[in-house]
């Protein structure tokens, strides 16, 4: 868990030469739009060759940008657990061509194919988004969304939430250690669930004071409902090259699918 939250607020980009992470110089807006366009295109894909090509492109991209490093490969786990569940259940949902039948249970070919298809597609999308957004701080995503026209209140909400993640995680670790120190061991009983309820409550109570203090401090510094991002909003040549590359890839995939 600590790892996930650290990733939310990494500010280490300046310590790594930009050339190592080849997408670092590209504006978050460009990357976000590329990620959404890629998701839309792959979602619409209906033929196996296109899907395999898309998967190949993102695998190459992952190797090129190092997107799976620093434990980021773990972000592929949830979607693959979902695929495993589908692999277990879809073949049992009936179909015309049984592969195997044991008593009343019939494993159908259609279900297997459908689950594998979903698995390929899901991995292509998740890996593609990971390649395009890896190493992007959530805060930059927040500012990028703001510049793309997302309402200010919503981007503020995102920025504050990201800011609190680490604080809350520390608070949670502290409370959890205190519980364990007193001999708490999670079991399957009312006491356990009540303790978790109190833990959640305490997490909220402790943090609400902090939230109020932050608002007070911001007002003292003259906050009037606007954040001023320190990075420049100008798009550069890198963005143009990157957009061109993404467009070529997307056009290639679209041509393979529909031409």
């Amino acid at each position: 868990m600590a790892n996930v939250i650290e990733n939310a607020a990494t500010y280490d980009a300046s310590f790594v030469p930009a050339s190592v992470w080849r997408l670092d110089g590209v504006d978050p807006r460009t990357r976000l739009i590329a990620a959404v366009s890629f998701s839309v295109l792959v979602t619409a894909v209906d033929s196996l060759p296109t899907l395999v090509a898309a998967l190949a492109v993102v695998v190459v991209g992952a190797g090129w940008t190092g997107a799976l490093g620093q434990q980021r490969w773990k972000r592929l786990i949830p979607v693959n657990l979902l695929v495993l569940m589908l692999l277990g259940l879809l073949p049992l949902s009936g179909g015309a061509t049984p592969v195997l039948s044991v008593g009343p249970i019939v494993v159908a070919r259609e279900g297997l194919v459908q689950a594998l298809w979903i698995g390929l597609k899901a991995n292509a999308i998740v890996l593609g988004v990971l390649v395009l957004l890896a190493r992007l701080e959530m805060a930059s995503i927040g500012y990028a969304l703001g510049r793309l026209g997302v309402p200010e209140k919503l981007t503020h909400l995102l920025l504050f939430t990201v800011r609190y993640l680490e604080v809350l995680q520390r608070e949670y670790t502290r409370l959890w250690s205190a519980m364990k120190m007193r001999g708490f061991r999670p079991r399957v009983d009312g006491h356990t669930y009540r303790s978790f309820g109190y833990l959640v409550g305490m997490l909220l109570v402790r943090s609400v004071d902090r939230a109020d203090r932050i608002v007070a401090a911001m007002k003292c510094r003259g906050f009037c409902g606007r954040f001023h991002p320190l990075d420049h909003a100008a798009l550069t040549v890198r963005d143009a090259w990157f957009s061109a590359l993404v467009l070529v890839v997307l056009a290639g995939l679209a041509a393979l699918e529909w031409a």
Partner: peptide
């Protein structure tokens, strides 16, 4: 900030 707190929790 308070809503963000609930989101973060």
């Amino acid at each position: 900030p308070r809503v963000a707190l609930v989101s973060a929790v």
